[in-house]
């Protein structure tokens, strides 16, 4: 498969000021500031194929935004190589801008007091689009994102979900090959998130747009990405499919049992199995799959209970991510 992003041994260091607490240290820092080198990105390598949907996740301060900024040409690396559609981002910034779209959830690009339509026209001008092609593209996106009824209202009067859809149109107006999204669903309600994910998948399917997304939302990862890269303190600690990600980091499964008879008096005592809830006709269990297999547990359960129904659920993605982040915090402490 054609590689559209290639990153080799990428490093980024920042010089940061060290200031100890207290007035005395503030005074000292004023006249004799001390600096230290901070490694934000530490020797990372990965590649992304054309049309792939990659979630780039990690706890706060892991180096996600710094990496995205280097991929989009905003920052230049301390060392290492990046090629985005065969361009070196910080050297070919203008050429690259025609090929990429960016959506930063916390940095809106729409004109606040004007209708979103005006920003689209401005972007058409910025990307030097032919008038007829621009109009065709705009109509296509307006229909796909279902924004026609509010696209002529001032942006300040739109809901966050409506605004984000318009932000997406602004980023896609020049038909970029790659879309970089930094926390695009932040602050959105469930319906707005769902709509946004649907159109992202649609754009990926119809136009083969490569999607590179950072998010703390497990739903984004599950509903959009087909591959996950986890970054922790500047280093890639996982790179693989969503399924492999779950296999590696999910340490339990949930078993829900509906019982045919009252078995409240039966005691279940299995190593690695925790009872989360129990009443006369139901039982909810958490199975530590590192200690015992689900098959073993079910065999045991069948021996003890009369089972009417059984449901096995994966560890929720949100919890997997929270777990990784917590481990990271503990390491820091």
């Amino acid at each position: 498969m054609e590689k559209i992003i290639e990153v080799k041994n990428l490093n980024k260091e920042f010089t940061s000021k060290i200031k100890l607490s207290g007035f005395r240290n503030s005074l000292k820092a004023l006249f004799k500031p001390e600096y230290q080198q901070m490694k934000a990105v530490d020797n990372i390598s990965f590649s992304v194929a054309k049309g792939e949907k990659v979630a780039f996740i990690g706890p706060n301060g892991a180096g996600k935004s710094t990496t995205i900024k280097m991929l989009t040409g905003i920052l230049y690396p301390s060392s290492g190589e990046i090629r985005v559609d065969n361009l070196v981002p910080w050297q070919d910034r203008k050429k690259l801008a025609f090929k990429i779209g960016t959506v930063f959830g916390q940095k809106p690009q729409l004109w606040y007091h004007l209708p979103a339509m005006d920003t689209f026209y401005l972007f058409g001008k910025i990307y030097e689009l032919d008038q007829a092609k621009f109009q065709k593209r705009l109509n296509f996106l307006i229909d796909k994102f279902q924004v026609r009824e509010f696209v002529n209202q001032p942006v300040r009067k739109l809901s966050l979900g409506q605004r984000m859809r318009c932000e997406m149109i602004a980023s896609l107006i020049h038909q970029p090959k790659i879309l970089f999204l930094d926390e695009p669903t932040i602050g959105l309600d469930v319906v707005a998130k769902q709509q946004l994910r649907e159109v992202l998948n649609l754009m990926n399917k119809e136009e083969e747009t490569t999607i590179f997304i950072t998010s703390h939302d497990a739903g984004d990862l599950e509903k959009i990405a087909d591959r996950v890269i986890v970054i922790d303190r500047g280093r890639v600690i996982f790179d693989g499919t969503v399924k492999n990600f779950k296999d590696k980091y999910a340490w339990y499964k949930l078993i829900d049992l509906e019982l045919a008879d009252n078995h409240a008096s039966e005691k279940l005592n299995l190593r690695g199995v925790k009872i989360l809830a129990q009443d006369k006709l139901s039982l909810k269990l958490e199975v530590d799959i590192k200690k015992i297999s689900v098959k073993e547990v079910i065999d045991k359960l069948l021996n003890i209970y009369q089972i009417a129904d059984i449901t096995i659920a994966e560890m929720p993605m949100e919890e997997i991510i929270a777990n990784i982040y917590e481990q990271n915090l503990q390491k820091i402490k």
């Binding site: 900024k69 989009t72 040409g73 905003i74 910034r93 203008k94 050429k95 801008a97 025609f98 990429i100 960016t102 940095k107 690009q109 910025i126 990307y127 030097e128």
Partner: peptide, 14 residues
Amino acid sequence: LDFYFTFPKNHLLH
């Protein structure tokens, strides 16, 4: 300036 770097125009002018 980050915002202006991602457009194909002179970022300072923009």
